[in-house]
Design a protein around this nucleic acid. Structure first.
Lengths: 222, 222
DNA sequence: AGTCACCTGATGTGATCACAGTATCGCTGG
DNA sequence: CCAGCGATACTGTGATCACATCAGGTGACT
């Protein structure tokens, strides 16, 4: 039993599940169950179900028919769709954030970028996912347009599980480090270059995945 | 007790609340309660709470501290934010939808436009809201990018309550009928004109509201 | 031995119960 | 007559119970 004090249990479970999705701990096709997660987290079904409901609203999980809730398998169409939305929103968010990038935030970006390099060097896919998320969102959150940031977050929520599947299999070393280019653009206060860097970062992922041939147009059998 | 058959009660409540929000039956600042809605709809707290959870995830309602859940009051910043997001996404969706606009869909658009004109003539704000929603989404849904449509729907969900407050007070007659321009652009297969018409439609609403002075930076008292 | 029916276990969903917190209203003291 | 304070009713939140549904396995029958 939860004694008290802590934050809302509801939100805690949601945050936990969300993190699992964004960092790719839950892969597409992974099946979830309210009772299972409840037992795993040591809570009742209620908060878990609440969290799953929210995630379903954001498209991060799917209520398949009845009796089955799973993180949706990625299809080529869905993948393409998500990526184009990212290309539409994220460069815009980056451009808006640029004027608000003070020294403090820039410092944090550099730190995250360094952590990213370490993650790539050691091949730690999970750390890479976390760092990548942190990098983009410290940038985006610098601008105060909450709605825009929120939209992008729901995109990442849907994108995360699949991203991990890819980055886990492919060598990270093949990536051009667009993050560094982004930092340089921020230092130079060059909005156009920044947008370009972010767009390239996203597109790189797209090309990577297209080459990997992991996207199936139909739902994976297993 | 629910006998059976029907859809998931959960989804029904969600759809009902959603419709209330989009058509503006619930205005900003309106306070909701799980028990109250449950009694009103003749169901238990559970489905209501589930629906509210989803709506909260989409930003349509706000869990204010504890003890209070309400549809968030509109502030100037939030309003501006939502509108810019709409300007970013909706013309794009319209442009993508253009190639898929067959005769059937175009006919539906014309019908909706006619209904809109009637609503304006009779000053029926609610019918106008419904028609406006129908118009935009029969267009957007013609393109098969589900994620993009979904993003736009969450925007409308947040925007709806406020839109109603404005359109209910101001005369609808002051509006330029951008819908007609949009239809003409569709007939002419002119993507640029279509995007422009949609953007203008959104911007018109923005100007209208800016002139109305209804946007307060603080929460409206009542 | 193969196939089909039934049965059991597990799951999502809705209802009800229980608890903690807060706002509101009425009472009391100044 | 007004301010401060306590009780009460109402809220969201979490737990538990109850039920319809479906997957998977085991048994019997051919």
């Amino acid at each position: 039993m939860m004694d008290a004090g802590e934050e809302r249990l509801n939100a805690a479970v949601y945050a936990d599940l969300r993190k699992r999705l964004v960092t790719g701990k839950m892969t597409p096709g992974c099946e979830l169950s309210t009772r299972g997660l409840a037992q795993e987290l040591g809570v009742s079904q209620t908060p878990v179900r609440d969290a799953l409901s929210r995630l379903a609203a954001e498209g991060a999980v799917e209520i398949r028919s009845k009796r089955r809730v799973q993180v949706p398998p990625m299809t080529a169409a869905r993948f393409d769709d998500l990526l184009r939305c990212r290309l539409l929103l994220e460069p815009e968010a980056a451009g808006l954030a640029l004027p608000h990038m003070d020294g403090e935030r820039l410092k944090r970006l550099r730190e995250i970028d360094a952590a990213l390099d370490r993650a790539i060097a050691t091949g730690d896919a999970e750390a890479y996912m976390e760092g990548n998320h942190a990098f983009h969102f410290t940038l985006y959150r610098a601008q105060e347009r909450r709605t825009l940031t929120q939209l992008i977050e729901t995109l990442w929520l849907q994108f995360g599980p699949f991203m991990r599947t890819v980055y886990g299999r492919l060598a990270n070393a093949t990536l051009v480090d667009q993050h560094r280019l982004a930092i340089e653009a921020i230092v130079a206060k060059d909005a156009v270059a920044l947008r370009k860097a972010i767009a390239a970062d996203i597109s790189d992922g797209m090309g990577l995945i297209a080459r990997s041939g992991l996207v199936s147009s139909t739902a994976p059998s297993v």
